[in-house]
Design a binder for these strands. Structure first.
Length: 325
DNA sequence: CTCCAGGAAC
DNA sequence: GTTCCCGGAG
């Protein structure tokens, strides 16, 4: 079977331009009409959409993004908000530390960058909460620069199409980055479409467990399909993340209770006579907080960790509230 | 039960 | 490299 020797390493990879043509046609016909696409928002709006989309489905992000950008259309506006407002607006998007980091990011951009995002990868990754993926995505989608975007979808699609194997777990390996850079179109504009189209294909067609190869625009060029889809769904890109009974659930319950407190100083039925409490951000008496979770030790540990993360404040009397500053 | 456009701390 | 953050839809 191995009677022919590959003359060059590049020869083992399908011609990217042959993949791009059907992929781009598919993109133009099937791209989701997300409100931050197609030049309808600012670079800051793109960054907000990317942060909200981390580990969260787009369908859930859209309404939050619209409401968020309506209230805080730029970094300066978000920088001026209180953390309590920001955490409340984040709602149930999940991983609320992202909200806090996004505001820290806004304060840096507003305070040190004249309210304009850095236009370099290094400048972007230096911002709080902005890592490799988000910096690359902003460079590509907001600024139109030619840069390879590497996320879990793109890793999966490129690995399948061009090498015929499933991408492995863990962080992106040098070989995966080399591949992404090698197949990225030379033209900047085409590179942006490529990044978005490959990502969209991974989200809608070339999914992890049940890829819809029957409707895939590049099935005829896909090495993974040609090889019989070896090891399909065999390995996850991340270890499974349970939720029930974990600190993540307990933290979510505590934070949700604080978000639900009536605004304007109500305390949900606790001691209204606490003379020292300020109006504006209501607090939850510790006695009520204890009823949120049966395991006292776990609850107290979670309250402490939320405090460490800056997601809540613990008042001298032990009551809890969202941070005012 | 599974799925999902990450980042940062250790 | 491993582990910790979260939540809702299917």
């Amino acid at each position: 079977m191995n009677d022919t020797v590959e003359p060059l390493a590049a020869a083992s990879v399908a011609d990217p331009s042959a993949v791009a043509a059907p992929l781009f046609a598919w993109w133009h016909a099937n791209a989701r009409d997300l409100p931050w696409r197609f030049g309808r928002t600012t670079p800051w709006g793109v960054l907000v959409s990317e942060v909200m989309s981390q580990q969260t489905q787009m369908s859930r992000v859209v309404p939050y993004w619209r409401a968020w950008m309506d209230v805080w259309p730029d970094a300066a506006a978000l920088a001026a908000a209180s953390p309590a407002e920001v955490i409340t607006a984040w709602g149930r998007l999940g991983y609320p530390r992202r909200a806090l980091r996004l505001q820290e990011c806004a304060r840096v951009v507003a305070g040190e960058c004249a309210d304009e995002l850095p236009r370099s990868y290094d400048g972007l990754t230096a911002l709080p909460g902005i890592g490799d993926y988000t910096a690359s995505a902003v460079m590509s989608f907001a600024f139109g620069m030619r840069i390879a975007v590497i996320d879990t979808n793109i890793r999966r699609v490129l690995s399948r199409v061009f090498t015929g194997v499933e991408s492995l777990g863990g962080s992106a390996k040098p070989a995966e980055r080399d591949l992404a850079n090698r197949v990225l179109p030379a033209d900047a504009g085409e590179s942006v479409t490529w990044n978005q189209a490959v990502m969209e294909l991974g989200a809608l067609v070339c999914t992890a467990k049940s890829p819809r190869c029957d409707v895939c625009p590049v099935s005829g060029l896909c090495m993974f399909l040609a090889a019989g889809r070896p090891g399909l769904g065999e390995r996850r890109t991340r270890p499974r993340q349970r939720f029930q009974g974990t600190d993540r659930q307990v933290r979510g319950i505590v934070l949700d209770a604080l978000r639900r407190l009536p605004a304007g100083g109500g305390d949900g039925g606790g001691d209204v006579g606490a003379a020292g409490t300020m109006p504006g951000v209501p607090s939850l008496p510790r006695a009520q907080a204890r009823q949120l979770w049966a395991d006292r030790a776990q609850l107290d540990a979670c309250i402490a960790s939320l405090d460490d993360d800056g997601l809540i404040e613990i008042l001298p009397d032990g009551s809890l509230r969202l941070p005012r500053a």
